[in-house]
């Protein structure tokens, strides 16, 4: 397992410490704290019925944000349903992320300059599409990568294998993440496969694979940076397994992790909390203080409040909106139905 910071926030791998400025190191911490707050608030807002579909992210900050931090604006993101934070840090406004959660098409309308598709619900589909995006970039001669994420359970899908194999066969610039949080809803990773690591699945595609401490933001960043450089230099895709954990349930739709997870396991992983260890590291370098952390927390809470307000104020969807987004030119059946619903909506 590739690691740079241990659980105590000590550098254990001097050689691979990424070249980040003090300001960048602090920015990483701000983003992780912000995203932890976002998770707590999202769970609360979901319970109040002010958000809809929500897949908790606490515990995965290093894995999600350390990887996104290594990307360029022109890189293309194909997230899974738990990967909303990466989209937000890539530039999706918070209120749109909330509209995605609620089920409003505007939440999926990526703003100009945010190169991404909305979170994929079909596990594995983002993998085969990433191979296509990456091949497209290669054909265009772009120095960019397609980046996609799935979970441990997702590695059992056919599209997972097809995606990495296609990207390998075309030597396409793709980075495939497997965020192994040990559970696919209630099913432990041991029931997905007899393979000892998920990173070794890269061997089947003949591509490079690496297993990274997914609670170590510096290791995730360094691995992603490495994969990105290889990819844009024409050396093909890479599979990165991040060993991580979700502290919360699978989703907020009634999943209860106490049915399938032991308290011991939860405690074991809480000791590895990416925020705790990175905070220790930054404090040892005199780069972080409680005051700074509180500032981030307050800022996050305030922005979340504003974003929810903005989501509330966004116009409600009409059937005619849904129809208008189906085709460039409406076929006869939708033209007819459009008239019908225009009439209904005018009453």
């Amino acid at each position: 397992m590739f690691q740079i910071l241990n659980d105590d926030g000590k550098i254990v791998n001097e050689e691979d410490v990424p070249d980040l400025s003090d300001e960048q190191l602090k920015e990483l911490m701000r983003r992780m704290v912000y995203t932890r707050v976002l998770d707590q608030r999202s769970i609360a807002l979901n319970r109040q019925g002010r958000l809809g579909f929500y897949a908790p992210t606490a515990g995965q900050e290093a894995s999600q944000l350390g990887s996104q931090f290594a990307l360029e604006q022109e890189d293309f993101l194909l997230p899974g349903y738990r990967d909303v934070p990466q989209l937000i840090w890539q530039g999706l406004p918070l209120y749109q992320a909330f509209l995605f959660s609620r089920g409003h098409f505007h939440g999926n309308q990526m703003p100009e300059g945010v190169h991404a598709v909305s979170p994929q619900i079909i596990i594995g589909a983002q993998y085969v599409q990433a191979a296509g995006v990456a091949l497209g970039m290669k054909k265009r001669g772009k120095k960019n990568v397609a980046v996609t994420y799935t979970g441990d359970g997702g590695t059992s899908q056919g599209d997972f294998y097809e995606g990495i194999n296609f990207a390998g066969a075309y030597k396409a610039p793709a980075i495939f993440f497997v965020q192994n949080n040990r559970f696919a809803i209630s099913v432990p990773v041991e029931k997905q496969t007899n393979a000892k690591t998920l990173a070794q699945k890269a061997v089947a595609a003949g591509i490079e694979g690496i297993q990274v401490d997914g609670m170590d933001v510096l290791a995730v960043y360094a691995a992603t940076k490495h994969a990105r450089e290889r990819a844009i230099n024409g050396e093909g895709p890479m599979l990165i397994e991040t060993l991580t954990y979700r502290y919360g349930p699978h989703t907020m739709a009634g999943d209860d992790p106490t049915r399938y997870r032991t308290e011991d396991l939860d405690n074991e992983w809480e000791k590895k909390d990416p925020l705790v260890r990175y905070r220790k590291y930054l404090e040892s370098k005199n780069l972080w203080s409680e005051e700074e952390e509180n500032k981030v927390i307050d800022q996050a809470k305030e922005e979340i409040k504003q974003a929810i307000k903005q989501a509330d104020q966004y116009p409600k969807q009409k059937v005619t909106d849904l129809m208008a987004n189906m085709y460039e030119e409406l076929p006869y059946n939708l033209q007819e139905q459009m008239e019908e619903y225009k009439e209904k909506e005018s009453k």
């Binding site: 598709v117 993998y127 085969v128 191979a131 995006v133 497209g136 054909k139 056919g158 097809e162 296609f166």
Partner: peptide
């Protein structure tokens, strides 16, 4: 792999 071909087409379309 037909599924891969479909995904490839979608991704290329996005580019």
């Amino acid at each position: 792999a037909e599924s891969g071909i479909g995904g490839l087409a979608i991704g290329l379309g996005l580019q």
